[in-house]
């Protein structure tokens, strides 16, 4: 990005040659594709989901069966292929919420602790081992995490809790928690590294110990970055698909998110419901098929909102210290 006048003067003459224009057009096209992608996602989800809801279906010229928005958002039964259909998204949302909350319990404290350790305590050598290891933690395919949950974690849990069902939310929460630790850690660590050294020195100058500085100075100063990392990681947990599809099961039970015993039950998060809908005996133009896009839209809106909020929060710490 060159705004200074010298460069502009120098490049002015050649800027409009056909070769330059061609190159510029190509690069612009590439960047524009990202906008096209977003618009396609939004348009596709909105138009397909519009065919699902009775209030919008006439607008897109679709006749036949529809569901009301109220039924979708407040119904407590998810049975897309029964007669009569039940399209209440709440059972799915309840399972998603529980997995998100459960994984947060694991990932947030561990992630922040990891970030503090890497940013304040770890030697260069330790960092050179730990950071790639964390990357691998985030890089293991989620289908493998699902397999681990089903194959090793659930049997281990059932020796402690004999009542736990074969598919359960607890093992799903644990693996999702493990896989989002690196996300919390790396973004929080970036925020902590961005805290100016002056603040730390000032702390030490006051006679504070490393503990005091880490917890009393660096962590508060990096709050917005840490919060941003929390939001991003939770949004990742909400969108996580394969691990929960394999480990959490395929029964759309309505769960009470406040009841910890629910973690021993199986549940069907939103993403798992989408996978199941495609394998189910659903017909191409049918209501169940469109409900896929209605859940997709719900998921997209939630994650998008969380991403934007996280961006706004993160922008704060950049402004503060850069």
């Amino acid at each position: 990005m060159s705004t200074d006048s010298l460069t502009q003067d120098l490049t002015q003459r050649t800027e409009n040659s056909s070769r330059e224009l061609l190159a510029r057009a190509f690069f612009f096209g590439c960047a524009f594709l990202s906008i096209v992608t977003t618009i396609s996602i939004a348009v596709l989800l909105v138009t397909e989901a519009a065919k699902f809801f009775s209030i919008t279906a006439p607008l897109v010229g679709v006749e036949g069966e529809t569901a009301t928005i109220a039924e979708f958002l407040t119904g407590t039964e998810w049975r897309p292929n029964f007669t009569p259909h039940e399209f209440g998204v709440l059972p799915l949302v309840s399972a998603t919420l529980m997995i998100t909350f459960g994984s947060a319990l694991i990932a947030l404290p561990l992630g922040v602790a990891t970030a503090i350790y890497l940013s304040e305590y770890a030697s260069e050598r330790a960092r050179s081992f730990l950071k790639p290891a964390l990357e691998i933690l985030a890089g293991v395919p989620t289908v493998i995490y699902g397999f681990f949950a089903l194959m090793y974690i659930t049997p281990a849990l059932s020796t402690i809790f004999p009542d736990i069902s074969f598919f359960n939310l607890l093992s799903a929460s644990i693996v999702v928690g493990i896989m989002i630790i690196p996300m919390v850690a790396s973004i929080s660590e970036d925020a902590m590294s961005a805290v100016p050294d002056d603040l730390r020195q000032a702390g030490y100058g006051m006679g504070a110990t490393k503990f005091d500085v880490s917890v009393g100075v660096v962590l508060p100063a990096a709050t917005s970055g840490v919060v941003a990392s929390f939001i991003l990681a939770l949004s990742r947990a909400i969108g996580e698909t394969m691990a929960v599809t394999i480990a959490a099961g395929s029964q759309a039970n309505m769960l009470n998110p406040l009841n910890p015993l629910g973690y021993f039950e199986s549940g069907m998060p939103m993403t798992a419901a989408m996978v199941q809908l495609l394998h189910g005996d659903i017909t191409g133009g049918g209501l169940a098929y469109r409900s896929l896009f209605a859940i997709g839209l719900t998921l997209f809106v939630i994650t998008l909102a969380m991403n934007i909020v996280s961006d706004l929060v993160a922008a704060r710490y950049r402004e503060e210290y850069e």
């Binding site: 990202s34 906008i35 977003t38 909400i238 989408m274 896009f293 998008l304 969380m306 991403n307 934007i308």
Partner: peptide, 20 residues
């Protein structure tokens, strides 16, 4: 807009890309 958009696209769940 492109800038913000790209960082948001990175956060879209993969299952939604499948729908796309």
């Amino acid at each position: 807009v492109v800038d913000v958009n790209i960082s948001n696209l990175a956060g879209v769940p993969s299952v939604v890309y499948g729908l796309l």
